[in-house]
């Protein structure tokens, strides 16, 4: 049996270097690889490019790397919750490529599945289309977008097994499955790591072939960004 287990976050992040490109799963703070992000802060890697839908908040998630000026470039779709991000971007300290969310997901999916490029209508006629090939299909204009290239994908799943098979929970799934196998090395951190054979193969969301390293995260804060509740009647 092929085993993907590594002992801890230190082993999981082995080989991470300055100026690399990372993919990081999560939507807002939901489903972010908390343990790997903490390790990237600890390793103090510099000049990295991060592909992630959001940039965390000022003191959590990718916001922690931003505060230490470790990120050279962000590729995201929405960064509205992070004041430090907006400040670094408007002052020119941080290079930012904002792209449509569906395009972000599909560029991950394309990298995962060996598709070098694809056409999408999203962004046609806007500044997102500048410098890109435009082409008409079925009477509608589309632009060509390329698959991402990344060195590491850091993703978070709910449960995983030693063979690297993954199951996600709720909307913490988001970009995580699309980033698995989309980088040279995919590191999966999970809340619960079980022996191969314990998970029902019918319930696996991502097969272990897309994962190189898996470990159980030591702690999960799972911070809620925008708590909204209703009163009991």
């Amino acid at each position: 049996m092929i085993t993907k287990t590594v002992a801890n976050v230190e082993a999981a992040c082995l080989g991470v270097k300055d100026h690399m490109t990372f993919m990081l799963g999560g939507f807002g703070l939901s489903g972010i690889p908390e343990n790997c992000i903490a390790q990237l802060v600890h390793l103090n890697v510099q000049g990295v490019t991060c592909i992630s839908n959001n940039a965390g908040v000022d003191n959590f998630g990718l916001g922690m790397l931003l505060q230490k000026h470790q990120i050279k470039k962000m590729i995201s779709s929405y960064v509205g919750e992070n004041a430090e991000f907006e400040r670094q971007m408007l002052s020119g300290e941080l290079e930012v490529e904002l792209i449509p969310q569906g395009t972000l997901a599909q560029r991950c999916r394309a990298a995962q599945s060996g598709i070098p490029a694809f056409y999408t209508p999203a962004g046609y006629g806007t500044e997102v289309a500048e410098g890109k090939e435009a082409r008409e299909f079925n009477g509608k204009m589309h632009i060509m977008e390329h698959a991402f290239k990344a060195d590491f994908a850091f993703i978070k799943a709910w449960k995983g097994d030693t063979a690297g098979n993954l199951i996600f929970k709720g909307t913490a799934r988001n970009f995580n499955p699309n980033m698995c196998g989309a980088a040279t090395i995919t590191v999966a951190e999970v809340e619960e790591l079980v022996p191969a054979g314990d998970l029902d193969p019918n319930h696996i969301h991502i097969p272990g072939i897309f994962v190189q390293r898996i470990f159980q995260g030591s702690t999960y804060e799972k911070r809620i960004e925008n708590l909204t509740v209703r009163k009991r009647a």
């Binding site: 939507f27 807002g28 703070l29 939901s30 489903g31 919750e81 709910w158 929970k169 709720g170 909307t171 913490a172 799972k222 911070r223 809620i224 960004e225 925008n226 708590l227 909204t228 509740v229 209703r230 009163k231 009991r232």
Partner: peptide, 21 residues
């Protein structure tokens, strides 16, 4: 569905506005 009752919020269950749902 609607927002959860107080105390039943789940960080793994949010909408696109990052609100608990």
């Amino acid at each position: 569905g609607p927002f959860p009752f107080e105390g039943e919020e789940d960080p793994d269950l949010i909408n696109a506005g990052k609100q608990t749902i």
